[in-house]
Simulated assay, not measured.
Amino acid sequence: MKRLIFSVVFVMLIAAAASLPFVLNAGFGQPPQGAQLSEVEKSPHYRDGQFHNALPTPGFTGSKNMLAAWWEFLFTKRENARPVQPLPMVATDLANLPTGEDTVVWLGHSSWYMQLAGQRILIDPVFSNYAAPFSFLNKAFSGEYPWKAQAMPDIDVLIISHDHYDHLDYATIKALLPKVKRVVTPLGVGSHLRYWGMRPEIIHEADWNQTVKINDALSIHVLPARHFSGRGLKRNQTLWGSFMFVTPQRKVYYSGDTGYGPHFKAIGEQFGSVDLAILENGQYDEDWKYIHMMPEETAQAAVDLNARAILPGHSGRFVLAKHTWDDPYKRLAAASEGRNYRLLTPRLGEPVHAADASQQFSAWWQ
């Protein structure tokens, strides 16, 4: 009997080892190839085998060498990097929100659910409890996370801003496949989605300053951002971007991941004003100051955009930088004092009603 058990376990281990490369390869995705690569290469932002920012944008800007910086980030214990208790949360049932009401719901980090002009829109969903190529890395903050792909309503438009693991999650996308009607992404990102089983005909890839018209009431403009991309060793094979959602009633902007730059001023001038700006505010550091904004830069970006209200994101669920978990909220709140925009700080899952200019939120991080 023991010999039989040993044989079964041995066979299972061999099978697991044999399947490991496929599992890893699936999660890594697949960069553009063949005809898709030929389309990518036509972009004015693609040269020398990769995409480029409009401005020179070094990824690392620290005084230490990169190896020392990585060692410090990975192995130096930092106080208050994670909250002691689960963050306050409203377990909103997204499927039962009235579709006729323009609503935005923060689902943690850079995941957002939005209803505009009757369309259900899901942005950068990461419903797994990790944001990394392996499940034992970069675990989410403690606490129950109520939103699962299987419980999502049908999604009219899925937005993926770029292909980093904290914005494009393999397990989440696989589970969402039957629910998604249309996808809008920057150039090249669709290659990962097609590789994972997304129907090619529903994927719309666009370069910066191109527009995807969803219907007569909703247009989505793919716009510049200042960042980088990559799920493996080779960077910048796919494009990154920000988005402007335009309806007859309002304009909503999503920054994606980005460092500060003149693109905010240009977007503000192009669209005149923004009713609501969902802006990156977290995972920043002086060692990579050009690819993520400091909170004070987030405040300035809102001014550049002529934003009437801002929603901060890119924090509140994962640790991807050296600052404390609550530093983004403290600094942005201070930097927003005296500004002409409203700083909206909903709890996780708390609906933001876009038409309600009087809606108030608490400083829940205090």
Rank of each mutant, 00 (worst) to 15 (best):
L4P: 00
L4Y: 11
V8W: 07
I14Q: 08
A15R: 01
A17V: 12
V23G: 02
G29H: 07
Q30P: 00
P32M: 10
Q33L: 08
Q33C: 01
Q36Y: 04
H45G: 01
R47P: 00
R47A: 14
P58Q: 10
G59R: 11
G62Y: 08
K64Y: 08
L67M: 10
W70T: 12
W70C: 01
W70F: 12
W71D: 14
R78G: 03
V84Q: 14
N96G: 00
G100R: 03
E101T: 15
T103P: 01
V105I: 14
L107H: 07
L107P: 02
G108A: 08
H109P: 00
S110A: 14
Y113G: 04
Q115T: 14
Q115Y: 01
R120G: 04
I121A: 04
D124K: 01
P125E: 13
V126F: 07
F127E: 08
F127C: 06
N129P: 00
N129V: 11
A132H: 14
F134A: 13
S135R: 08
F136G: 02
K139W: 05
K139A: 14
F141L: 05
G143K: 02
G143N: 06
P146W: 09
Q150E: 15
I160A: 05
Y165H: 12
D166L: 01
D166H: 11
H167P: 00
D169P: 00
D169S: 11
Y170M: 04
Y170C: 08
K174Q: 14
A175S: 12
L176A: 07
P178N: 11
K179S: 09
V180D: 05
T185D: 06
T185A: 15
P186L: 09
P186M: 10
P186Y: 11
H192Q: 07
H192N: 15
Y195H: 14
G197P: 03
E201P: 00
W208H: 14
Q210Y: 04
I214L: 04
H221W: 11
H221N: 14
P224Y: 09
P224C: 08
A225W: 03
F228D: 02
R235L: 14
T238L: 01
L239G: 01
F243H: 10
V246Y: 00
P248Y: 12
Y253Q: 03
Y254I: 13
D257A: 13
P262D: 15
H263L: 13
E269P: 00
Q270R: 14
F271N: 05
G272H: 07
G272D: 10
S273K: 12
V274C: 12
D275P: 02
L276M: 11
A277P: 04
A277W: 10
I278N: 05
I278A: 08
L279K: 05
E280R: 03
W288M: 06
K289W: 02
I291Q: 07
H292L: 09
E296T: 15
A299N: 06
A302W: 06
A302Y: 07
N306V: 07
G313E: 10
H314W: 09
S315T: 13
G316T: 11
F318C: 08
A321T: 07
H323E: 15
L332Y: 06
A333N: 10
A333Q: 11
A334M: 05
A335C: 05
A335T: 12
S336T: 11
E337I: 12
E337S: 05
R339W: 04
P346C: 09
R347K: 15
G349H: 09
A355L: 05
S358D: 15
Q359E: 13
A363L: 10
W365Y: 12
